[in-house]
């Protein structure tokens, strides 16, 4: 049933965020430490285990893949509800500080060295059904390589 997949996802999120809060308390900082990341690891392990045991029929899986597919629309809604006006009010110091930080961070990425694998493997099922990913692969092929 679809709700089993949604419930599994919800359960991973609740446990992960709770663990992130506890971790923050243990470190004595007023912040959630990696709650979403912990939830993702839980879903990878539990989802992988159940799917190996053939305990995840397609209908259950669709409860997770639906939210996976809603990800980009949710990000668009998130962008539309950002406090962009406040950022622009912050003026030049805020803009320069973030420009320098982002520029330096981008420049550091190649220093970590490129991995031998150029593309994420195409059979990765995470967004395989998503028409967006197919489109992005297609468009990256059609781009001229510089």
């Amino acid at each position: 049933m679809v709700i089993y997949g949604v419930a599994l996802l919800a359960g991973c999120m609740l446990v992960g965020l709770w663990a992130g809060d506890v971790l923050g308390m243990l470190l004595d900082i007023d912040s959630n430490v990696g709650g979403v990341g912990i939830a993702m690891l839980l879903l990878i392990f539990i989802g992988g285990y159940l799917s190996d045991k053939k305990k995840l029929p397609a209908s259950t899986e669709s409860g997770i893949t639906f939210w996976n597919g809603m990800y980009i629309p949710i990000v668009v809604a998130m962008a539309a509800s950002q406090n962009v006006a406040a950022a622009i009010d912050g003026g030049l110091i805020a803009l320069f500080a973030s420009l320098v930080a982002v520029g330096a961070s981008f420049a550091l990425i190649p220093l970590f060295g490129r991995s031998s694998k150029k593309k994420p493997s195409s059979e990765a099922p995470s967004t395989a059904q998503d028409p967006l990913s197919a489109r992005s692969v297609a468009s990256s092929h059609s781009r001229p390589t510089r």
Partner: peptide, 27 residues
């Protein structure tokens, strides 16, 4: 409704959902 749709709760749920199918080995 954009605030609810793009708020922390649904955003985190959708981000976590993207992890489904990722292989731990790669991480």
């Amino acid at each position: 409704g954009l605030g609810l749709m793009g708020g922390g709760m649904l955003r985190d749920l959708a981000i976590i959902a993207t992890a489904y199918g990722v292989r731990f080995q790669e991480i």
